[in-house]
């Protein structure tokens, strides 16, 4: 029973890491850059949704849509302010710059939203639960993996079936050839960052009812999600999602067996070990060297 409940929790958290990591994936795939402060964007999603819904009293769907749109806009802003100027001059300063922007937004939220962690008002998703293998599982806990896998699936469909999705993938595979097809590479990168912000927002809104909403809630999630993205090889939506699930289940299993004090030590040691043995990640492919 301990194991079953650990699995359920692990899958829920894991798909949340996966969602955040999908955000790393889309930008890395299209532009070889990431928003290192992805955790802050996730926090923004939760905070905005809380503010619109609980504080301003908007209907929940409207609050969610508005929060997600703003997260996507924030993604675009990050790309314009902290990524593009550095990429243009061939510097990897974007890494530090996105971290700096994360610090700024975390603190800005601290002063506007308040220092107090807040709790999302419960919905039926939290109050209702089902019994699975003798363990009570809240609907919200099931919703997270469903949305996570669903979005990974949708992302795959978008890439495989739509004109614009194929165009974004083309940018990854061959930027020059993509431009020859009339694809605006700059716009594709912007879109990728918007999508990345959107995913982070979804993750934030999904985890908020199970967790607390505060300006610092995203930091550790962001780092773990980055570990997940790297472990997944930042190569494909499914690789990233599966790495997320594995990481979540691993965490939950360690917690269930040894207590959560060792969870981070074990998990992060495994990250180092995995990368030492497979530098390209679990599901990544080694790039071909050229002279």
């Amino acid at each position: 029973m301990l194991i079953i409940s650990a699995m359920i929790i692990g899958l829920g958290l894991g798909s949340m890491y996966g969602l955040l990591a999908l955000g790393f994936y889309v930008t890395y795939a299209v532009s070889n850059t990431v928003n290192f402060a992805q955790g802050s964007t996730m926090m923004l999603g939760a905070v905005l949704c809380f503010t619109f819904w609980a504080t301003l009293g908007w209907p929940l769907p409207a609050a969610i849509v508005a929060a997600l749109l703003l997260c996507a806009a924030w993604g675009v802003a990050v790309e314009r302010v902290a990524v593009r100027p550095f990429v243009r001059r061939g510097s990897d300063g974007w890494l530090m710059a996105t971290v700096a922007l994360g610090i700024v937004v975390d603190n800005a939220v601290l002063f506007t939203f308040g220092k107090d962690p807040r709790g999302m008002p419960p919905t039926f998703l939290v109050t209702e639960s089902l019994a699975v293998g003798g363990v009570r599982v809240q609907l919200q806990q099931m919703l997270i993996p469903l949305v996570g896998l669903g979005l990974a699936f949708a992302l795959t469909l978008f890439a495989r079936r739509t004109r614009h999705g194929a165009a974004m993938l083309a940018v990854v595979q061959n930027g020059d050839a993509a431009r020859l097809m009339g694809i605006n590479v700059g716009a594709a990168v912007t879109a990728a960052f918007a999508l990345s912000g959107f995913f982070a927002g979804v993750a934030g809104i999904l985890i908020a009812p199970l967790f607390t909403v505060s300006s610092t809630m995203g930091t550790l999630f962001g780092i773990k999600a980055f570990a997940v993205a790297i472990l997944g090889g930042i190569g494909s939506p499914w690789g990233v999602m599966i790495a997320g699930l594995l990481y979540g289940v691993l965490e939950a299993t360690v917690t269930a067996s040894f207590g959560s004090t060792y969870t981070q030590i074990v998990a992060f040691s495994l990250v180092i070990l995995t990368l030492a043995l497979r530098p390209e990640g679990l599901f990544g492919r080694a790039a071909v060297k050229k002279v």
Binding site: L2, L13, I207, F211, T255, G259
Partner: peptide, 16 residues
């Protein structure tokens, strides 16, 4: 049982 301030779920500890 111990837990971290960032832990989302503590059912394993409580179960024990």
């Amino acid at each position: 049982e111990k837990f971290e301030s960032t832990d989302v779920d503590m059912t394993p500890q409580l179960t024990r």
